[in-house]
């Protein structure tokens, strides 16, 4: 190579600066080939792919490639992988899904969007709820029951708690408030229990104050508070009740029904999701 390109033999363009001559060496052959190939590729590309903008449209290219087409293909490919699992979920009952770790994992992952669209607005993206306003779905306390069928019913038909307002004197309200707060840590006094009986609370909350899932009455002996644990909130709940029409200050807590909005399968999948958030109970 060195001899072939020897400066003295190669003709120059006649330009010379400080003894440096501009030679007429051609560019390397590989470079020239690559250059012409690129030029050919430009033409090929213009024929194959959409390329030339027209007044209202553009040339389509012979293979009909589009970006959205490529996207749709990718989605279809993904759907094809998911479909057998989705079909299998369709045929399984909620309890069967819960018992199969692999399907449970798939169900929970694929239900994320469904949960986000329908549940997360109140219950939070992962069921964390908002204290005092929207129930936490992660814990093991259920007003209307935590079995698969209870949860399915809650989602499909909705829930609306009902606690009457209590027109009692302040001393009694204070006594009951003290009782409810103490009961949550198991420290209720006899005096409190007497007031509880006297006010008729046991009719709904039970003689042991553990609530009743058929009525949606709260368990007063656990550490979970539907409408806040501070004294003021507790007092307000006793005084004005829950979901009382025409009562100022009543607590509001309504779970809307999704039975008309969602398919049976979607409700089943959401049931599985809610059940497996951690608080699910067996039948």
């Amino acid at each position: 190579m060195a001899e072939k390109n020897s400066q003295n033999q190669v003709p120059d363009t006649g330009h010379e600066w400080d003894g440096i001559r501009e030679l007429t060496n051609p560019p390397p052959r590989w470079w020239t080939i690559a250059f012409y190939l690129s030029a050919i590729w430009v033409v090929v590309y213009f024929i194959i792919y959409p390329s030339i903008p027209l007044a209202t449209d553009h040339t389509k290219g012979v293979i009909g490639w589009t970006a959205i087409g490529e996207y749709k293909e990718a989605v279809a490919k993904n759907d094809a992988i998911r479909q057998p699992y989705l079909d299998k979920l369709e045929t399984m009952s909620a309890q069967e899904i819960i018992n199969d770790p692999e399907m449970l994992n798939f169900a929970n992952s694929s239900t994320k969007a469904l949960f986000g669209d329908n549940c997360a607005a109140c219950h939070g993206s992962n069921g964390q709820g908002i204290a005092g306003m929207f129930p936490v779905l992660l814990d093991d306390d259920w007003l209307f029951g935590g079995t698969v069928s209870d949860i399915a019913t809650s989602i499909a038909s909705g829930r609306k708690g009902n606690m009457p307002a209590h027109d009692l004197d302040d001393a009694q309200i204070n006594l009951l408030t003290d009782f409810v707060i103490a009961a949550s840590t198991g420290q209720a006094t006899q005096e409190g229990w007497d007031a509880y009986q006297a006010a008729g609370c046991f009719a709904c909350h039970g003689a042991d104050a553990k609530g009743n899932k058929w009525m949606g009455s709260a368990n007063l002996t656990d550490a979970i508070w539907r409408f806040g644990s501070d004294r003021e909130s507790v007092m307000r709940t006793i005084k004005y009740g829950v979901n009382q029409d025409g009562v100022d200050g009543t607590q509001n807590g309504v779970m809307p029904a999704f039975g008309d909005k969602l398919s049976e399968n979607d409700i089943k999948l959401l049931t599985v999701k809610v059940w497996s958030l951690g608080g699910g109970q067996s039948e």
């Binding site: 939070g124 993206s125 992962n126 964390q128 936490v136 992660l138 814990d139 093991d140 306390d141 840590t185 368990n219 656990d222 550490a223 979970i224 951690g278």
Partner: peptide, 18 residues
């Protein structure tokens, strides 16, 4: 460790982490 929420309160007063 579950990030949202970091913990949840349980009915017996305990804290749960997922």
């Amino acid at each position: 460790h579950e990030r949202q929420p970091l913990y949840a309160m349980m009915s017996n007063g305990s804290i749960r982490n997922s």
